[in-house]
Amino acid sequence: MNLTLAQGIVKASALLGAGLCMGMGALGPGVGEGFVAGKACEGIARSPENASLITRTMLVGQAVSESTGIYSLVIALLLIFST
């Protein structure tokens, strides 16, 4: 693979951008999912008879709050593969 200088700079900055995108995009979902799981633990401790309902709602909520991380993953993949 022989690249000119300009192509090399574009490729390098795309890879750097992909790394930054994934790292920063993972911050929000990490905090959010941890918060949801903690609240679910509190809820189960308060009313253990609702544990299955709480777990179900927690999983759906986590998957929804994960979506920003998934968007950053998709953008990182675009940056890596399409440049």
């Binding site: 994960e66 998934i70 968007y71 993953l73 993949l77």
Partner: peptide, 16 residues
């Protein structure tokens, strides 16, 4: 976009 990219990204990311 959100409902489809969530499924797509999770499966693709896992496979990679």
């Amino acid at each position: 976009v959100s409902i489809s990219f969530r499924l797509f990204g999770n499966i693709l990311g896992g496979a990679i």
